[in-house]
């Protein structure tokens, strides 16, 4: 197992109280695997990614759990050691490519800097490799693009450059947080194809964080569905999307307009996500769940295996009986 997150809990201390952003999150990523983390805003998917990268804000406290990467506990590392892992072993691609690039430095130079640092080659060699890295992400005329500034590139081109930067070291694991959300669908389609291809060719593992179940279906081998800071269901993409077991996953699929879906009316999920400052004692989804009973409000269900590799945190069986 390349990355293993076990029972990770994270709290944020703020002026208006303590927010429990993550509660006992467990997740694993194998070598060469693409794992999706899907959830709505506030579900904790980005906090999970930032914890792995060691980029949590100062007011965040990890209250339990560990993050094992290639056998080492990342949470126990010092600042210097973390920096060595970040970028070199774990690359990252965020949502807005413009903020990830240096605005007044030519694209080729930015890439060359990263390559020089991580691979220890000469400046000239780094510049040659930078052009090669741009070609790898299917940029036409990489020599020309290397001499451009980020503002001269389109959104899709910028995101390709950011991917080239993240893959430059080259890392074993790439964490992509809503990396295609700011892009047009046709460009998104091309970027997703590119990421899948890079993963297959180099054996890079990817954690892809998204709110879009369609992207999960297209890209990911496995998926973890998060709700209110907890993983509520995890399994192979086919299992989770074709036979979802958790009421939240089921509701999410019913609420999603989909071109290939029969013309059913969308079923909205009533109510709202619970306030993370006052986490309910029982299941976090109970207040919005049509199948919730007294036991759901009293005790918190843990992830349990329903079939090999398919885990669900729910007191009820798929048919509403006791699981």
């Amino acid at each position: 197992m390349l990355l293993e997150i076990k029972d990770l809990s994270v709290e944020f201390h703020g002026m208006r109280g303590t927010m429990k952003a993550l509660h006992n999150v467990s997740l694993s990523v194998d070598k060469g695997e693409i794992v999706g983390i899907v959830g709505e805003s506030g579900s904790g998917k980005s906090v999970t990614a930032l914890s792995v990268l060691g980029l949590l804000d100062k007011n965040a406290v990890v209250t339990s759990g560990e993050i094992r990467y290639a056998g080492r506990n990342l949470l126990a590392l010092g600042k210097k050691e973390k920096q060595a892992v970040r970028g070199k072993q774990i690359g990252m691609v965020f949502q807005e490519p413009m903020t990830a690039l240096h605005p007044t430095m030519r694209v080729g130079k930015q890439l060359a800097q990263v390559i020089k640092r991580h691979r220890g080659v000469s400046g000239q060699e780094a510049e040659r490799l930078a052009v090669h890295a741009l070609r790898e992400v299917h940029i036409h005329d990489p020599e020309l693009v290397a001499r451009k500034y980020p503002f001269e590139l389109s959104g899709g081109m910028r995101q390709r450059v950011v991917i080239a930067l993240a893959m430059a070291a080259p890392p074993e694991l790439l964490i992509a947080d809503e990396s295609t959300t700011a892009l047009d669908v046709t460009i998104q389609h091309e970027i997703l194809k590119l990421m899948k291809e890079l993963s297959e060719r180099r054996g890079t593992s990817i954690v892809f964080i998204t709110h879009d179940l369609g992207i999960v279906a297209q890209l990911c081998d496995r998926v973890a569905v998060m709700y209110a800071g907890e993983v509520v269901e995890t399994g192979s993409t086919a299992d989770v999307l074709r036979s979802p077991q958790h009421p939240y996953t089921q509701a999410l699929l019913h609420a999603l307009p989909d071109l290939a879906d029969p013309d059913e009316p969308l079923l909205a999920i009533g109510g709202e996500v619970p306030d993370l400052r006052r986490r309910p004692a029982g299941c976090s989804f109970a207040s919005r769940c049509s199948r919730a009973t007294e036991e759901c409000r009293l005790g918190k269900p843990r992830l349990e295996e329903r079939k090999p590799g398919h885990e669900v945190a729910c007191w009820k069986g798929a048919d509403g009986s006791h699981g």
């Binding site: 046709t186 179940l213 989909d258 071109l259």
Partner: peptide, 23 residues
């Protein structure tokens, strides 16, 4: 056609995949 086939779907795509031509 390209627009429709680019939209990621949870189910099997209704319009077969296809992309832009090289400029």
């Amino acid at each position: 056609r390209i627009l429709l086939s680019s939209l990621p779907s949870v189910y099997e795509p209704s319009v077969p995949a296809g992309g832009f031509a090289e400029p």
